[in-house]
Design a protein around this nucleic acid. Structure first.
Lengths: 232, 232
DNA sequence: TCAATGGTTCGGCAGAGGCCGAACCATTAG
DNA sequence: CTAATGGTTCGGCCTCTGCCGAACCATTGA
């Protein structure tokens, strides 16, 4: 059956430690240069080049040339979600003896990280919960959210680029994304990305280099309290 | 980082063609003997034994001895969902040139199949849609459903074993599961499994050997019309 | 007790593929 | 033009692991 082969092929692509390290870095949703990815994976540039072209061939990554550099990013959010689901599985792999799941061992990552291009972890959940509890966001269908009229006002007041988010017409606007550490949905899609952008632009959060981990700044912690009525 | 290794390890387990073939068979939610799995994968028993113990070690499978036989099944529905998400990815891997996704090439599988232990494909979606449109099922939270009072009556009339489904207390009762061919949610969890059981027990559907494909019988087609008001 | 059947362990073989050094191409800066 | 930098291709090495034959263990049935 053709799907069996396809399954093993795509899984095998993710199943190499060096490629998994690259994919993990790319889970921050940004594009990275080939040498950057090689450094992260701890391999030479020529080895990385082989891995990268194989992942492009397998439709996991997309490549874009810019000057002397070549930038690689995840091919789609579907890829990101498949990786998240595997990570969720890996996180629960703990035996009954040592109950501590893998992600528990990195509290910073659990606290706040990027999931592709939006916020995840405790902070992502806190933001999402605040939006739903204030009636700014309502569940719509099984995997989407509806931004209510008060929600639009709130976002505008916050400085979220709503027109920009709506412009990406091919993309889901407000999507539910399962958080693998909190095991509950957080806001993703174009709106989720726009909200995350706001956090970065206003200095509420900072990306850590070579990691999906995000640091919540002091002003970010205050903003969570004043704007969202949440404490983390 | 520990999560990176965990990711590559679990992906590598799924990334071998023989193991992927076994996992694919086990996606029917049932337990299969070691020799059965070996036959499916097209390898000898001793080779299969090695694969199986590695997958048990990696918490993908659970094993149960019974007499001379040894039965293997997926360790949890999380495993099934991770595999589904990879299959969804593999299905969209088609190049722009040949746009037909992989699952399109198996219309029977797309029409009706088991997803772990419940019905999926067009039939699964038809059942789910019917239940929601009649007000028997209401979305509850992002990933669950609520069975309404009329819904309970309907299920009892149908012969669904509701007490049995409720007994599995550790399990989600009515869960939303994303259908990778229809790209919409169908009913899973204990209730989804109980409904699927009803279909098999009443002779409305039959499992095909060595496959997740399910055949809808003539009486099943009529039942869909009379009980669910649906045509497929 | 003895065969038959299902399953696992062991040992050795062979192929796949990850890795790097070296060479090569492309773009930018001086 | 030349040098520097980023990236890829090529060739060969080497490990990893999937595979099977053979032997072994466990359960069942006669």
């Amino acid at each position: 059956m053709i799907t069996v082969n396809a399954l093993s092929e795509v899984a095998a692509l993710m199943g190499d430690p060096a490629r998994a390290a690259m994919l993990s870095l790319l889970m921050d949703g940004r594009a990275h240069t080939a040498s950057d990815l090689a450094l992260t994976a701890g391999i030479t540039a020529q080895t990385a080049s082989g891995h990268l072209s194989r992942m492009v061939e397998g439709n996991l990554l997309a490549a874009r040339a810019q000057g002397r550099n070549r930038f690689y990013r995840l091919a789609s959010s579907d890829v990101a979600h498949a990786i998240e689901s595997l990570m969720a599985l890996a996180g629960t792999r703990a035996t009954p003896a040592s109950r501590t799941a893998a992600w528990r061992r990195d509290p910073d990552l659990r606290f706040c990280r990027t999931c592709y291009d939006h916020l995840a972890g405790q902070v992502g959940i806190a933001v999402t919960d605040s939006l739903t509890q204030h009636g700014y966001l309502e569940p719509k269908g099984p995997r989407d959210w509806k931004l209510t009229e008060p929600g639009e006002l709130f976002c505008e007041r916050l400085g979220v680029d709503l027109p920009g988010a709506r412009q990406a017409s091919s993309r889901h606007f407000a999507r539910q994304c399962l958080d693998w550490s909190e095991r509950r949905p957080h806001i993703s899609g174009a709106l989720g990305a726009a909200i995350a952008d706001t956090f970065f632009k206003r200095g509420w959060a900072e990306r850590l280099r070579r990691s999906r981990t995000v640091r919540l700044t002091d002003s970010g912690r205050r903003a969570l309290g004043s704007h969202f009525g949440a404490t983390v």
